[in-house]
């Protein structure tokens, strides 16, 4: 707290004090480049968010890159089918660290309205780690902006050392995940058990 007060005082004098970690996070959180990648309906709202009215550029995230090699953020916008899931995982693997995933809309979270479908993946978090989930069908562009701000907060809180440091600076943590194959009836495996931890359903007796 005293640090904060001393900082404010110094800022008034035109002296900015920061730490390496804060500077690093400040730079990263204000230039998140999303992958230009739409799957279904939510992609239209994602485009709407990047247009004049909602203007995602205010958050430094307007540079949609068509190549995963240049992207920091994958917005999974829409229904992931079983035919598309391996390509989504492959795109994620091709992105350089640090990388983040926003699951936009009910379909990307859980299969949404199409959950009954035989060809629909019941949530992309079965195969890749998701940072932010946005509910809605489709979520409004404001919801995407809110998710982006939540992601910025998350990046801001990253530490460069210690046990809680993020995945991309932990040499032992994986940055690529196995790509599912087409099996006889379903994707093989149908989920990545190391990643997928659904909330336990409490059954009252």
């Amino acid at each position: 707290m005293t640090d904060e007060i001393a900082r404010k005082e110094l800022e008034k004098q035109g002296v900015v004090i920061t730490s390496m970690g804060e500077l690093y996070n400040w730079g990263r959180k204000n230039s998140i480049w999303p992958l230009q990648f739409g799957l279904a309906c939510c992609a239209i709202e994602m485009i709407a968010a990047s247009m004049a009215r909602f203007d995602i550029a205010r958050f430094g995230a307007e540079v949609f890159r068509p190549s995963p090699r240049q992207a920091d953020l994958m917005i999974v916008a829409g229904t992931v089918t079983k035919k598309m899931a391996p390509q989504v995982v492959r795109l994620y693997n091709q992105m350089p660290e640090p990388k983040y995933v926003i699951a936009m809309g009910a379909c990307a979270i859980s299969g949404g309205p199409f959950k009954q479908g035989y060809n629909v993946l019941k949530g992309i978090d079965r195969f890749i780690p998701v940072d932010i989930f946005i509910p809605g069908c489709p979520p409004r562009p404001e919801a995407l902006l809110d998710a982006l701000m939540a992601l910025q907060k998350k990046i801001e809180g990253d530490t460069l050392r210690g046990a809680n440091r993020p995945r991309h600076i932990r040499p032992d943590a994986p940055s690529e995940f196995p790509i599912p194959e087409f099996g006889e009836h379903d994707l093989v495996p149908d989920k990545n058990p190391a990643l997928f931890h659904p909330a336990a359903v409490l059954l009252e007796k």
């Binding site: 799957l39 279904a40 309906c41 239209i44 829409g78 229904t79 089918t81 035919k83 598309m84 390509q87 309205p113 199409f114 009954q116 479908g117 035989y118 060809n119 629909v120």
Partner: peptide, 27 residues
Amino acid sequence: YLHRNHEKIAEKNSYLAAIPYTDRLDY
């Protein structure tokens, strides 16, 4: 790559329940 089984889902549900699914055809 976006085959979402619309027709099969509509055949399983009531007539009314197919209306919101039609929204998502040509979204």
